[in-house]
Amino acid sequence: MATIETAGIVKRFGAVEALSGVDLVVERGELFGLIGPDGGGKSTLLRVLATLIPADSGKVVIEGLDAGRDYREIRSLVGYMPSRFSLYPDLTVEENLKLFAALFRVPAGDNYSLAGGILEHLLPFRKRRAAALSGGMKQKLALCCALVHEPSVLLLDEPTTGIDPVSRDELWRILGRLKRRGVAIVVSTPYMDEARLCDRVALVMQGRFLDAGTPGEIVERHGRETWAARADGMSRLLVDLRSSPLVESCHAFGDQHHVTPSPGASIERLREEMTARGHRVEIREIVPGIEDCFIRVASAHTA
């Protein structure tokens, strides 16, 4: 039996269909990522899984329990971290932890086995008000609070938004540890480098899963031939690449531009064309990543 099993979840808000038939299976010890454009349905799905809002139709089963009927039991098995910081800012770190422990009727000790490593980071600040913590620390505290009752399912809505790269690494190391302890984790993220760290990811768009699979499978199915281009004037290069008939699409990727070539185009011909337009350009073929696939799929569906 899978830890999370859903079939055909539909959720409407007035005239808007936020979820239009989502099928999701997450196994014990699996880290499942949700990526997709803003407004695609990621947060709604997480809230349905957390039993905070009921689905209009479809099946949601968590640890063999039905979300419509057994939501009370499910809540004691699920840890949920919403995207907005939702702890009590005026309470200290320690008070927040005690409050969550009390709400879930578990002892308020320091030895929550799941939260173990994170708690150590927090202890030096136990008397500090939550509002006065740095962004990374706030997220660690929120994660600790979501773990006080040792849930077997962890639902995280953009836990790393607003968090610097070093703290992000730390949070993902913690998720890796929880996964090895058997926790089933569903996490949404706008960072495509994080999608690579998931066992499987789903592209969530317009209320449904456009595709789901391992990061490798996603790239295999949606990746196209991709070239990386670099020159001195990058913003001018972007404009010129986009206007070239040899280029189907082109997007900025940090210090290079990623080009999807038109059928039949070659690197040599594009290099000649860009040189003729005055660029000292360097172009080479690269292996596309999840972010390339995301942009391709998202653009195709919103165009």
Binding site: I35, G36, P37, D38, S83, E158, T161, G162, P190, M192, H251, A252, E291, F294, I295, A298, S299, T302
Partner: peptide, 13 residues
């Protein structure tokens, strides 16, 4: 101040 926090890859660009 972090104008693109939580914004998807297409919207960020």
């Amino acid at each position: 101040d972090e104008p693109t926090g939580g914004v998807d890859p297409v919207a960020r660009r």
